[in-house]
C-alpha cells in the first residue's frame, strides 16, 4: 500500500510549523506519531501534499507537574505517559488508560496530542480528558488559546481546532480520589466497544464529587454530567449506581457497526460503567 506522493517537512520549532501550515493551507497536515494518519494515507483515504512532521520540536515534548497542575506536551508518547512515575502517583488514570491503547509498538510512537486532536470517536484519551476537565492548548498565527476538552469535540473528526492551529499540550488539575478506565474491546489493538472513565472523590462514607465520560458511544466523546451528579452526595449504593447508569445511557448515542448493534452497545456501556464505578469507588 503506497500513499499518494507528498513533500515532507520537519520544522525545527513551533513557529516554523505554524508558518508551514499558513504557507500550504489545506494542502498541509501535521503528523505526530502517525499511527492514525499514515494508515489513512496508505489506504488513500487521506491525500496530503505537504506532511509536516512535528518530531523535532522539543517544546512539544515532556510532562511537567506543578503542585496539582499537570501539563503534558502534545508529542509525549503513550509509552512515556506509562513510564512517568510522578504522573502515575498524581493522576494514575493516565497510565491505566494508556496501557489499554493499541499495543506496545503503537504506544511507543502514538502521542497524547495526536490521540486527542484527531477527533476519532474511537480514541481513548478524549473521554479521559473530558473526565479530568482538561484544557487543550492550541497555538496558531494569532498566538495561543485554551479550549476545554468538554467543548472541543463537535462531531467525528471535527473539533474547535482551527486549520492553522497546532494542539501543543493538554493541561488539567489532578483531583485525587478513586479512578478507573474500563474498556471492552474485541481484541488487542481494537477500539472500544464501550469504555468508561470515572473519577470519584470520597468524603468519609459519601461520594462528594464524581466525573463520568464514555468512549466510542457517540460521534464524540461523551462527558455525562448527569451520571456524575447522580453519584455525588450518595453512598454509592445499588440504586445510586442504577441512576448513574440510566443517566449515562440517556447521554450516549451509539450507532451499529462491526462491534455490534445499538442495543448490544448500550448493554455493554452499562456493564462497563458499573465496573468502572465499582473500581473507582474501591480506590476512593
Amino acid at each position: 500500500m503506497i500513499p499518494a506522493a507528498f513533500e515532507y517537512h520537519r520544522p525545527p520549532d513551533l513557529a516554523a510549523a505554524i508558518a508551514a501550515l499558513r504557507d500550504y493551507g489545506d494542502d498541509a497536515r501535521v503528523v505526530a506519531g502517525g499511527h492514525s494518519l499514515i494508515p489513512m494515507m496508505k489506504l488513500r483515504m487521506a491525500e496530503i501534499p505537504h506532511l509536516i512532521d512535528l518530531q523535532a520540536i522539543t517544546a512539544l515534548k515532556g510532562i511537567s507537574i506543578d503542585g496539582s497542575t499537570v501539563r503534558i506536551g502534545a508529542m509525549t508518547t503513550q509509552a512515556e505517559l506509562i513510564a512517568h512515575d510522578g504522573l502515575a502517583s498524581l493522576a494514575p488514570i493516565l497510565r491505566e488508560t494508556a496501557l489499554q491503547i493499541a499495543d506496545p509498538q503503537v504506544r511507543y510512537v502514538g502521542t497524547i496530542g495526536g490521540n486527542v486532536a484527531n477527533g476519532d470517536p474511537g480514541n481513548d484519551m478524549p473521554a479521559l480528558m473530558q473526565c479530568l476537565d482538561a484544557g487543550f492548548i492550541l497555538a496558531g498565527p494569532d498566538g495561543e488559546r485554551t479550549v476545554s476538552a468538554r467543548e472541543f469535540y463537535q462531531s467525528a473528526y471535527v473539533t474547535l481546532r482551527e486549520d492553522g492551529e497546532i494542539l501543543t499540550a493538554v493541561s488539567f488539575e489532578a483531583t485525587g480520589g478513586g479512578h478507573a478506565y474500563e474498556k471492552q474491546k474485541r481484541k488487542i489493538g481494537d477500539y472500544a466497544t464501550a469504555a468508561a472513565a470515572v473519577l470519584m472523590v470520597k468524603d468519609k462514607t459519601a461520594c462528594s464529587r464524581a466525573s463520568v465520560a464514555m468512549t466510542n458511544l457517540s460521534d464524540v466523546p461523551v462527558w455525562s454530567k448527569a451520571a456524575g451528579d447522580a453519584l455525588a452526595g450518595t453512598s454509592c449504593g445499588p440504586a445510586d449506581i442504577d441512576a448513574a447508569v440510566a443517566a449515562m445511557l440517556a447521554d450516549i448515542a451509539p450507532t451499529a457497526d462491526n462491534r455490534g448493534p445499538v442495543e448490544f452497545k448500550r448493554h455493554v456501556a452499562g456493564v462497563i460503567l458499573r465496573r468502572a464505578i465499582a473500581r473507582a469507588w474501591s480506590r476512593a
Partner: peptide, 29 residues
C-alpha cells in the same frame, strides 16, 4: 498485514520497538 496490526515488520528504532510498515522512511532520517 501492512496495517500496523501483526508486528511482522517490527524493528528497533532509537531504542523503541516500531512497526516499520507505519513509518515513512523520511521520518526515520
Amino acid at each position: 498485514c501492512e496495517t500496523s496490526h501483526c508486528g511482522a515488520c517490527t524493528i528497533d528504532m532509537n531504542g523503541r520497538s516500531v512497526k516499520s510498515c507505519t513509518v515513512f522512511a523520511a521520518q526515520a532520517d
